[in-house]
């Protein structure tokens, strides 16, 4: 495709991203830096502030479908699941708007989402994070990293690797228009196991990657190695997802009182 085609593609993907993902990096950064006119997020830093947040201050209802539990680590695990499920739904709608995605076999669309959504979520999570914590509940709450670290094992191990990734990823200073193309490239990945039409997926991903490369040259003209750095981040994200899947398996095995949302069961089953 020519330059103008790639610019059109970048615009389409950016519009789809802004339309379907509820929390943009722009909004998150404005909340985190205190520059927004809306009220500051409620800070969750210990058990008391967590239950205050759960009593209607931050979340309007307890984690739906999750059994009531007094164990704090289990509770946080359910909250992570709720957010993940909601984001999978948003990512599915985003994927449907990426040019070429709905033309793929339905089976291949399922495969791309199964393997791509967690990488996409961990690529978007840094937008909500700084080194001290992360925004939750659509920006109404801020959970401190220290509180998440203080949970008992294995629950304390859920978020820490994502913070470590986020600190490095945020140093690249991507904006929503860059992230839109990056996330689209993650979803349209030609080497997911079990794809029926690999060539078709590779062709779509190639177009997205060309659009991303061109977009970065214009949007980050002073950062010459940004495109290859992002290709490396794709590999890092795959590793992060593998470790996350192993941790979820461990929690399932050792924490008999926890349950996994049916959508996440589908995604994790026979994944890696």
């Amino acid at each position: 495709p020519g330059g103008s085609d790639l610019k059109t593609l970048a615009k389409q993907v950016n519009t789809a991203y802004l339309k379907n993902l509820s929390m943009t990096k722009k909004r998150a950064r404005s909340i985190l830096s205190g520059k927004t006119s809306s009220t500051s997020p409620f800070v969750i830093y210990d058990v008391d502030t967590l239950w205050k947040a759960e009593s209607g201050l931050v979340w309007s209802q307890l984690a739906p479908g999750a059994p009531l539990t007094k164990e704090i680590g289990v509770h946080v695990f359910y909250r992570c699941q709720c957010t993940t499920v909601e984001t999978v739904r948003e990512l599915t709608e985003f994927a449907k708007c990426i040019p070429g995605f709905v033309d793929l076999f339905l089976n291949d669309q399922v495969t791309l989402l199964k393997y791509g959504v967690h990488e996409a979520i961990f690529a978007m999570l840094p937008s909500l994070m700084n080194k001290d914590g992360l925004l939750v509940a659509n920006g109404k709450g801020f959970v401190t990293r220290e509180f998440l670290r203080s949970l008992r094992k294995p629950f304390s191990e859920i978020m820490e690797p994502k913070f470590e990734f986020a600190v490095k990823f945020n140093a690249l200073e991507l904006d929503d228009s860059d992230l839109a193309l990056f996330v689209a490239a993650i979803i349209l990945c030609g080497d997911r196991p079990g794809l029926m039409n690999v060539k078709q997926v590779e062709q779509s991903q190639d177009n997205i990657l060309q659009a991303l490369d061109l977009h970065l040259q214009a949007n980050h003209s002073d950062s010459v190695y940004l495109f290859p750095k992002l290709l490396q981040k794709m590999a890092d994200l795959r590793q992060l997802v593998t470790e996350n899947a192993q941790l979820v398996q461990k929690i399932k095995k050792t924490e008999s009182e926890t349950s996994l949302h049916p959508l996440l069961q589908e995604i994790y089953k026979d994944m890696y």
Binding site: T92, K114, G194
Partner: peptide, 21 residues
């Protein structure tokens, strides 16, 4: 694949919100 990924299929085929969160 369809049998094993019913909710993902449902999400892909419906534009409204079919998943009970």
């Amino acid at each position: 694949l369809k049998e094993k990924h019913k909710i993902l299929h449902q999400l892909l085929q419906n534009s409204t919100s079919p998943v009970d969160l």
